[in-house]
């Protein structure tokens, strides 16, 4: 009679095939030898040596200054984008928080609108406004792509802050800035950190923005992965880049989430 666990089977299968297997395969691939890359443009060859074990890709990543520079640039870009996104996201979230009811929903929908449109529509518009390519368009594009998530995450945390608390601080003589600094901001900090984790993860693995809006100098680790898969045809190296990226991101996300839990 107890057959309800069967309900979990479809999602478990999809998860095993669509999350665990690809990640496992990437890990295994990163420890393979690079295959015969002579078959460029052909789609019936494998671009790695199945069954081999090799650390060559990791050695390449950790010794070649090109890859060190690539990771440093990706981290710097993610840092700048995350800080800007959190500031702008907070301002928008505060507007949602203070808006009366019908306007609140309109505001949320307008902020979410870009996320319901194709990223390519968005990139097209960013090119028109901020310039075809270069560091400016890359940062603008990344920030605008991530601001809706940050704004809505922070707004959810702000909604839990009772407004009378802020009024009380004002009534006790705090200036508006003081009340914000001492009451509103600390109470919404867990939301800000949640948004920081998401923004950092997404901006550090950014692929489309830097690729479509950047010049080669603005390419990130993820762009290099795509280049290795589709042009240089070194899948072992592409997988190793992914493994290093995932490792760094997991540590960063874990650190931030520990900090967040300590606040809550």
């Amino acid at each position: 009679m107890n057959r309800w666990p069967l309900l979990l089977v479809p999602s478990a299968l999809l998860w095993l095939a669509g999350v665990l297997a690809p990640l496992g395969f990437v890990l295994r691939l990163s420890l393979s030898s690079s295959g015969n890359r002579a078959g460029e443009g052909r789609y019936d060859t494998l671009f790695y040596e199945p069954g081999t074990w090799s650390f060559a890709s990791f050695v390449e990543i950790f010794t070649n200054p090109y890859y060190r520079g690539l990771f440093a640039f990706t981290a710097a870009l993610a840092g700048v984008v995350t800080v800007l996104t959190l500031i702008f996201g907070y301002v928008l979230a505060y507007a949602i928080y203070r808006a009366p009811m019908p306007r609140k929903i309109v505001l949320i929908l307008l902020i979410a609108l870009p996320k319901f449109t194709n990223i390519l529509v968005f990139v097209f518009g960013v090119k028109m406004i901020f310039g075809a390519s270069g560091p400016g368009p890359v940062i603008a594009g990344e920030v605008l792509m991530l601001v809706p998530y940050a704004a809505l995450t922070i707004a959810a945390a702000l909604e839990a802050v009772p407004y009378p608390l802020i009024e009380a601080a004002r009534g006790l003589g705090a200036s508006a800035a003081m009340a914000f600094w001492r009451v509103t901001l600390p109470l919404s900090l867990p939301g800000v950190l949640a948004a920081a984790i998401l923004t950092l993860l997404w901006s550090a693995s950014a692929f489309l923005g830097p690729y479509l809006l950047g010049e080669p100098a603005q390419y990130t680790v993820a762009v290099e992965v795509d280049r290795q898969v589709h042009q240089d045809l070194d899948w072992a190296l592409a997988a190793a880049l992914n493994v290093v990226l995932l490792g760094v991101l997991s540590v960063a996300a874990y650190g931030l989430s520990v900090w967040r839990r300590r606040l809550a």
Binding site: G18, F25, V26, Y48, S205, W235, A238, L246
Partner: peptide, 30 residues
């Protein structure tokens, strides 16, 4: 309710934060 439900749910929601590029390379190879 079952044991490990929270972990199960967290795993289920993992694709929301995983870099698409990592999944994409693995999926392509498979």
């Amino acid at each position: 309710r079952f044991r490990g439900q929270d972990a199960w749910e967290a795993a289920l929601l993992l694709p929301l934060v995983l870099p698409a590029i990592a999944i994409a390379v693995g999926m392509l190879a498979i």
